[in-house]
Amino acid sequence: MLSAGVLAWIGAVFLAAGFVKGVVGMGLPTVAMGLLAVTMAPAQAAALLLIPSLVTNLWQLLTGPSFGGLCKRLWAMMAGVVLGTIAGAGLLTGTHTGLASAGLGVALVVYAVFGLAKAGFTTSARHEALMSPLVGVATGLVTGATGVFVIPAVPYLQSLRLDRENLIQALGLSFTVSTAALAIGLFRTGAFASPTAQLAGSVAALAPALAGMFAGQALRQKMSVEAFRKVFFAGLLALGVYLAAEALL
């Protein structure tokens, strides 16, 4: 049984994580995993975020303008995500999780700095067929090690030069598939010590996550494209610094 203080902390974590996701279209697992690690093991935190992550990502995916087109374009990447995540899910309960999280944080910082400097890269249409499955598998392996779905999926999707709403929807697609694959991987590796209790806790975390996401979405709709770009990369920078510092310290 969790104390009232821990339950309040979990609610606050998912409220904040949902708000970040609503504004920049991502960040719920990263924020939640980083903050929940203060009170619980990474595998337990990952189990707790499954329902909020799945529902908020499905909402983000299904409310966008180009569901069918994005699925057709990104199916090879999604297949790679599933394979990589299930294959690497055991890493989340291993002894090198902290090192993997630190590496992920550094990668986020580097990518955000380049993005804020407008020094991003572009993936041409003729290279997508090769890059998509490779990026998917790499994202899956990182997800298995850290419980975070960001690298290299986000830089790759950004490089496709999608417009703002299509980018948000593509992120929702990638994160939905990653969440489902992580759930399967954790179940296969026996990470659910008490499935019923962990599922109930994950369902309870959904309400604050949704409340935060709706508030964040309302703020995002008022932003210009340039303001959104700056907030997007600033959010990545903050998440990367936090993730690296939390893992190293």
Rank of each mutant, 00 (worst) to 15 (best):
W59K: 14
W59F: 00
Q60I: 02
L61S: 07
L62F: 13
L62K: 01
L62R: 04
L62A: 06
T63C: 06
T63P: 10
G64Y: 01
G64L: 10
G64R: 04
P65R: 06
P65K: 06
P65V: 05
S66L: 09
S66E: 14
S66R: 15
F67G: 00
L70H: 05
L70S: 14
K72M: 09
W75C: 07
W75G: 10
W75I: 03
A76P: 06
A76K: 07
M78S: 00
M78L: 14
A79H: 07
V81R: 00
V82D: 01
L83Y: 03
G84H: 09
T85D: 11
T85C: 13
T85Q: 08
I86N: 04
I86L: 09
A87G: 09
A89F: 13
L91S: 15
L91T: 13
L91V: 11
G94I: 08
G94M: 07
H96W: 02
T97M: 12
T97S: 09
T97A: 15
L99W: 04
S101M: 12
S101A: 12
A102E: 01
A102L: 03
G105E: 02
V106T: 13
V106L: 14
L108H: 09
L108A: 02
V110N: 07
Y111F: 05
A112Y: 07
A112L: 01
V113F: 10
F114S: 08
F114R: 15
F114E: 11
L116H: 00
K118V: 00
K118R: 15
G120I: 03
T122P: 11
T122Q: 03
T123M: 04
R126N: 14
H127K: 06
H127M: 12
A129F: 12
L130K: 14
M131H: 10
M131G: 01
M131A: 15
S132G: 14
P133W: 09
